[in-house]
């Protein structure tokens, strides 16, 4: 018996896996090309209802709190926006022309850019908004430090939710000086510029903002500003 076993010594069975790997690679390529890994994000918007608009709610905004941002874009021959511009003014619009020279005496409109942070400091419109919303931003910064150090809870989910709730409280705290931002877009403005403007509200923790239509006063101020800039 023992001798026989030696004869039937099994040969090493080797399966060639190369075709299997080839096939798998093909399948992986297919799945990689056909899938979306990145899920889109959403930006929440709530517009005032039509009845409110008719009551011209926006006029009740205190002059000291109001900042109007106007976004505009250059468009090419096909109507595709190319370059974005941002203008803003603080307080109420003023198109008084006392000496009747066709120019607005004291045009408070300024041109600015969407710039973001540079060297850890806010630039462009963000710097303006941050300055206006200083009290809230300062409190949120302190809160953020606590959140990063997990001071509210060692559990990540609880820590996050406490932070979110407190941040919301601070943003809506009426005892702080908070600005009201009115975002307006010219007919040429790109969708991107509006989203960027809305984004700045989030970044600067501004809770009170609205999207509004551009009106005659704004157009007049813009036209006057652009003429003055060209000179």
């Amino acid at each position: 018996m023992a001798k026989k076993k030696e004869y039937t010594k099994k040969k090493d069975v080797r399966v060639d896996f190369t075709p299997m790997v080839d096939m798998n690679m093909l399948l992986i390529t297919f799945f990689m090309l056909c899938t979306t890994m990145i899920k889109s994000q959403t930006l929440q918007i709530s517009l005032p209802s039509n009845e409110k608009v008719d009551k011209t709610e926006q006029n009740k905004v205190k002059q000291s709190e109001a900042v109007t941002i106007i976004v505009d874009s250059d468009i090419d021959d096909n109507g595709v926006p190319t370059k974005d511009y941002v203008y803003y003014y603080e307080g109420m619009p003023n198109i008084e022309d006392a000496n009747k020279d066709g120019k607005i005496d004291n045009n408070i409109m300024k041109e600015i850019e969407f710039k973001g942070n540079e060297n850890g400091k806010a630039q462009g419109i963000r710097a303006v908004l941050q300055e206006r919303n200083k009290q809230v931003v300062e409190k949120i910064t302190v809160l953020k430090e606590d959140w990063k150090a997990k001071k509210f809870s060692s559990n990540k989910a609880v820590n996050d939710s406490v932070y979110q709730a407190r941040a919301k409280e601070i943003r809506n705290d009426s005892t702080l000086t908070r600005p009201v931002i009115i975002i307006k877009a010219t007919p040429n403005a790109s969708y991107k510029s509006l989203v960027t403007a809305l984004d700045e509200m989030q970044i600067n923790n501004i809770s009170r903002y609205q999207i509004d239509r551009i009106n005659g006063t704004d157009s007049a101020m813009m036209a006057d500003f652009l003429i003055a800039r060209q000179k």
Partner: peptide
């Protein structure tokens, strides 16, 4: 790169329907 005026038409329509809240995909 869509002009905002195009999106505004959609927003206005939603507003007329009293669907004042919605989201923008980003």
């Amino acid at each position: 790169t869509t002009p905002y005026s195009v999106v505004q038409v959609v927003m206005d329509n939603l507003q007329t329907l009293k669907m004042n809240k919605f989201t923008l995909m980003t």
